[in-house]
Design a protein around this nucleic acid. Sequence first.
DNA 1: ACTAAAATTGACCAACTAGTATGTTTTTGT
DNA 2: ACAAAAACATACTAGTTGGTCAATTTTAGT
Lengths: 218, 218
Amino acid sequence: MSLNLSFDLEISKNMTRPTKKSTRIKLRILDNAVSEFARNGLKGTSVNTIAHRSGVSKSQLYYYFSNKESLYEKTLVHMIHIWQDLFKIENTDDGPENFLRAYIKRKMRLFFEHPEIAQLYSNEIAQGAPFLRKHWHLSKTQFDIGIKQINEWVGQGLMDPIDPQLLQLTVLGVTEFYGLHATQVRFLTGCDENSQFDFEYYTHEVTNLILKGCGIKF
Amino acid sequence: MSLNLSFDLEISKNMTRPTKKSTRIKLRILDNAVSEFARNGLKGTSVNTIAHRSGVSKSQLYYYFSNKESLYEKTLVHMIHIWQDLFKIENTDDGPENFLRAYIKRKMRLFFEHPEIAQLYSNEIAQGAPFLRKHWHLSKTQFDIGIKQINEWVGQGLMDPIDPQLLQLTVLGVTEFYGLHATQVRFLTGCDENSQFDFEYYTHEVTNLILKGCGIKF
DNA sequence: ACTAAAATTGACCAACTAGTATGTTTTTGT
DNA sequence: ACAAAAACATACTAGTTGGTCAATTTTAGT
């Protein structure tokens, strides 16, 4: 039942679980904090619950994290690190179509398989990003790289002259939505709860819509 | 500072504030409950706070609402009523372009001006819609009307053969995103906090992207 | 083996939580 | 004017919350 996000998503660079016991515990706490904060928000989450879920006592948790807000902020940073490892803009040499296909697929998959991440993120942003604000410069860098790349493609006539900011934000919005609202999507499309809803199909169709919207021939 | 959602959005059919005192109080409480639940979730919200913000005592609130969960559910229903009043699918005679332009604009405006609504809704859905589930049949009806209309337009050759479910969900996703993540959008696009970010422009561009993505000529 | 540091425990506190119980005031129909 | 019902206030309970403290156990360096 445990998420074990860090391990799952191979955040640790060398792909081995951290040897040091203390950092292992910290990671375990952070993983549980992600899902708890995602579900109940900053105020609604009980530190006690996170501690118990992580198999440590409350005082033990307070030994590693000074207070609730600090834990919350560190949870956000933890999450944004995973985020950035996965969303690096790369393989741009293949041109806009292949890039966008791969990019959207990756984002869709992440949000779909780990809705808690989308939820935690979305919630913090919706509040005006009071805690995440100071860590945004990193996202901004990636975002600006994206702008440059899209503008290049536009210049090469590989796609219509589209606002690169708008394109990136729209992709983010759509993918986040499908991850976050999987339940609603399932209901509205009449897909019953148990049977897996057609992830591949939706990814493909959404991608096509966006590609066409950018005037990318395929 | 009060939201006064009900009045703001002219939910009351005759556009006059309800005469009966008790229903006026109830509405005031529900309005405040929307923003509180949106901000802090079901668990994180204090009934006391809602009461005080609404200018009533806690026991007074408990006189009108039997318990917290009931208040939460009634808040959701309250919100979904506003929702449905605003999102009725109409003016379809003008063809897909005009309809979609108006539709997206309405949705964008609502989410942008009242992010609390998007937030409350989004949060509930992300949890799997435990409370909203039983009230979904209404949304479903509207959704199915949309499907029929889009299929008609496709049949008439007014747009590419697109999955009508996908189109509707994507529109919902994008508009919700821009309302919910206004802060992030402002930051990433370099729009400073005070100056209003160009709502008209984004609405227009997003609409164009989607229209083009559907193969609607304009 | 000894010691200092790191890690862990459980008891504790003040503030807050949802919700109730018992009244008192106000409104309403007649 | 009067009784019944609706509306509201005050005080309270039992449980939970974030957070601390001192004491204890475990670990690591020598």
